[in-house]
Computed example of a mutant assay.
Amino acid sequence: MQRPSVRSKSEERSSHIMRAAAVGIEKEEMLASTPDSLLREQSSESEGIRGRFERIIRDAQNRIVAAVEEEDGEGKFREDAWARPGGGGGVSRVMQGGKVWEKAGVGVSVVYGTMPPEAYRAAKGNNSVNGASNGASGGVPFFAAGISSVMHPRNPFAPTMHFNYRYFETEEWNGIPGQWWFGGGTDITPSYVDEEDMRHFHGIYKRVCDNHDPAYYPKFKQWADDYFLCKHRNQRRGLGGIFFDDLNDRPQDEILAFSTEALGAVTESYLPLVQKHKNDPFTEQQKEWQQMRRGLYVEYNLVYDRGTTFGLKTAGRIESILMSLPLTARWEYCPPVDPTSPEAELVDACTNPRTWV
């Protein structure tokens, strides 16, 4: 019964951070070339957790982009980089019109901002900290870095995949203690159920979780099933994976190691599924079904996804924020689904989460 309260706290915190960051993050400026680091104070930050995490996500972006380009065989990622006047920035890499992937994106970002003390108190549930009440000016400085990706294959039997891993911290300010936490996860969104595929995907992440804490996989698998629920459809957008937030219950190095291994498992968990299905024959009706499932994906991302809403509410770079959306999608009015069909099986699996491993 403890996990739901953690999620509620996380959602409340995210809401306050979104509102606070809307006035605490500066507009980006496009760069002619990509810098080696996005950190504001590279000399002092590079050897700490900020620098270590940035290097991990930048290296992961390079490796994943190279692996996807190799598998696609034709498509190439476009790279855009930007910086913010007060520090931080991002690098987006997006491929459109590939042979295997219709659209794929991998983005990294480093964000510096401030949040009002009252937002911090509400997010942390601590009304005893000092802040605006004693006349102090300014806000609580925060730092956030992360990597996110969504990949939409052409073939309706090859699944869409999403991952996001992030690190967030606040600095000590006027008696308000600094805090840090990690969040993220990897999840899969097929248009058709292939149990062997799901055993492979979930099995990889169970192994990663078990390497760090046997309690992680059941907890984070359930968290993903809850988090990726499209409430107005009463369906998950896909068949889950792992998801976690506010993780700071053990030393930073331990959680950093877990996040790093989970991020490193992306290609192992996902690319074999694309290799297996990229040349499967399919009908026009099956392609239309994929397009409709993408429509639900769009609905979820724009209505519920905290990363997307955070970006939209903080005046972020809109093209990078919306790179997760598919190149094409479909919405039909009251589409009929044969209850004995493979399409109905997918709806059932998204409505009633299954145990895959």
Rank of each mutant, 00 (worst) to 15 (best):
C230L: 15
I242N: 05
G238V: 09
D226K: 04
K231Q: 13
D246I: 09
K221I: 05
F220G: 05
Q235L: 15
H232R: 12
G240R: 11
G238C: 08
F228G: 05
W223E: 10
R236V: 02
Y217V: 07
G238P: 13
N234G: 15
W223H: 09
D245W: 13
Q235F: 05
Y227E: 05
R237P: 09
G240E: 10
R233A: 10
A224V: 01
G241H: 13
Y227C: 05
R233T: 11
Y227H: 07
I242F: 05
P214H: 02
D226Q: 07
G241K: 09
R233G: 13
D226L: 04
P214W: 01
A224C: 15
P218A: 08
R237K: 15
G241T: 11
F243N: 13
F220M: 14
R236A: 01
L239T: 09
R237S: 08
G240V: 12
L239M: 11
D226N: 09
C230P: 00
F220A: 03
Y217T: 03
Y216L: 12
L239F: 10
L239N: 10
A215Q: 06
G240M: 07
Y227A: 01
A215S: 15
Q222D: 09
A224W: 00
D245S: 06
F220T: 05
F243C: 11
D246Q: 15
F243Y: 15
F244G: 05
D213I: 03
G241A: 13
K221F: 03
D225I: 01
Y216K: 00
F220V: 03
R233H: 14
A224S: 15
Y216I: 00
R233L: 14
W223A: 11
D246R: 13
Y216C: 00
I242E: 08
I242P: 07
F244E: 04
G241Q: 12
F244T: 12
I242M: 10
D226Y: 03
W223S: 14
L229F: 07
K219D: 06
G238L: 11
W223C: 02
C230F: 06
R236I: 03
K231H: 12
K231C: 01
R237M: 14
R233P: 10
G241F: 05
K219F: 01
F228C: 10
D213P: 03
D226W: 07
W223I: 01
R233D: 14
D246S: 13
W223F: 08
D246H: 15
L239D: 07
L229I: 08
N234A: 15
G240C: 10
D246A: 11
Q235D: 12
G241R: 08
F243I: 10
Y216P: 01
A224E: 05
K219G: 03
Q235V: 06
D226H: 07
K221T: 04
G240P: 12
F244K: 06
F220S: 01
D245L: 12
D246K: 13
A215F: 00
K221V: 01
D213C: 02
D246V: 09
P214V: 08
K231V: 12
F243T: 09
Y227P: 06
Q235C: 11
H232Q: 12
